[in-house]
Simulated scan of single mutants.
Amino acid sequence: MASIVLASASPRRAELLRQIGLSFHVRPADIDETPGTGESPVHYVERLARGKALAVQAAEPSATVIGSDTSVVLGGRILGKPQNSQDAADMLRRLSGTTHQVLTAVAIASVNACESRVSVTDVRFRGLSDEEINAYVATGEPMDKAGGYGIQGLGGIFVEELRGSYSAVVGLPLQETAELLAGAGYPVWESWNSRQESRNE
Rank of each mutant, 00 (worst) to 15 (best):
A53Y: 11
L54D: 14
L54N: 11
A55E: 14
V56P: 13
Q57W: 08
P61S: 06
S62D: 15
V65A: 11
V65K: 14
I66E: 04
G67N: 04
G67F: 08
S68N: 01
T70F: 04
L74V: 02
L74A: 03
G75P: 07
G76L: 02
G76V: 04
I78T: 06
G80M: 03
P82G: 02
Q83D: 13
N84A: 05
Q86H: 15
A88E: 03
A88P: 06
S96A: 12
H100T: 10
H100L: 09
H100Y: 12
H100W: 11
L103I: 04
T104G: 10
V106I: 14
V106Y: 09
A107N: 05
V111L: 11
N112R: 15
N112A: 15
A113M: 08
A113G: 07
E115S: 07
S116H: 08
S116F: 01
S119H: 09
V120H: 05
D122W: 02
D122V: 01
V123C: 10
R124Q: 13
R126H: 12
R126A: 14
R126Y: 06
G127F: 14
E131Q: 15
E131V: 12
N134V: 00
A135Y: 01
Y136F: 09
Y136K: 02
A138R: 12
T139Q: 08
T139S: 15
T139K: 11
P142D: 00
P142W: 01
M143N: 07
M143T: 05
